[in-house]
Amino acid sequence: MHLTLWIAAGLLATVALAGGVSKTFVPKEKLAAHSGGEWVGQAGVGFVKTLGILELLAAAGLILPAALGIAPVMVPVTALCWVLLMVGAMITHGRLGQFRLALLNFAYLAVAAFIAWGRFGLEPFTG
C-alpha cells in the first residue's frame, strides 16, 4: 500500500505541476483559447495565477514533505486541500456544461481522497 500511495501522490503531483505551470506562466488569453479553458475568460488574471501557484504548491506538498522527512503530515493535508480545489473545479466545469472535464476533476478528487485516507490512516509516515 505504501508504494501505491507514493505512485498516486506522484501522479497527482504531476497533474498539479502541469496545471500550475500553465496557469502561472501561460497568458490568460492563450489559456482561454484552449478547449476546457473557457472559464479563464470569465476570471481575473490574478485569480488564474493564484490557482496556478496553489497547484504548484500542491505538487510540492504531495511529494517533498515525505521525501525530505520534514513535516510528512503535510502530504495528506495537501491531498485534502486538493479535494477542495477539485470540488471548485467540478462546479466551474459543470456550470459551463463541460461534464467530461468535471468527471476528470472527480477522478483527481478520488485520487487525492485516496492519498489522504491512506496517509492519515492506513500507511501514515512515521517520523
Rank of each mutant, 00 (worst) to 15 (best):
A58R: 03
H2W: 01
A32M: 13
I7F: 08
V73Y: 13
G127C: 00
M90T: 03
M86Y: 06
V21A: 12
G46F: 01
C81L: 13
A113L: 12
A102S: 14
L103M: 06
F99A: 02
V83F: 10
A16P: 09
T78P: 13
L62R: 08
L80A: 13
G127F: 00
H34M: 15
H34F: 09
A60E: 03
I115Y: 12
G44N: 03
L62T: 02
L68K: 00
L85N: 14
I63E: 06
I91L: 13
R100H: 04
R95M: 08
K28R: 15
G121C: 06
P72E: 08
V15H: 10
F114T: 11
L62C: 05
I115Q: 15
A79P: 13
K30T: 10
P72N: 10
A116H: 09
F99I: 07
A67M: 07
M86I: 02
I7R: 05
G97R: 10
L96R: 15
A59D: 05
G121V: 01
T14I: 05
G36N: 13
Q42P: 02
A60F: 06
A89Q: 09
A112L: 02
H93E: 08
T50E: 02
A71Y: 11
G44T: 02
E29V: 09
A33Q: 11
G52R: 05
A112S: 15
A79K: 14
T24Q: 07
N105P: 06
S22W: 03
A102E: 04
L17P: 13
T126E: 05
P124C: 08
G36Q: 12
G41S: 11
A112H: 14
V40G: 07
Y108A: 11
L56H: 07
T78E: 14
L122T: 02
A66N: 02
V83A: 15
L56Q: 06
G94Y: 05
G97H: 07
F106C: 12
K28G: 10
T14C: 11
L3V: 04
V75W: 04
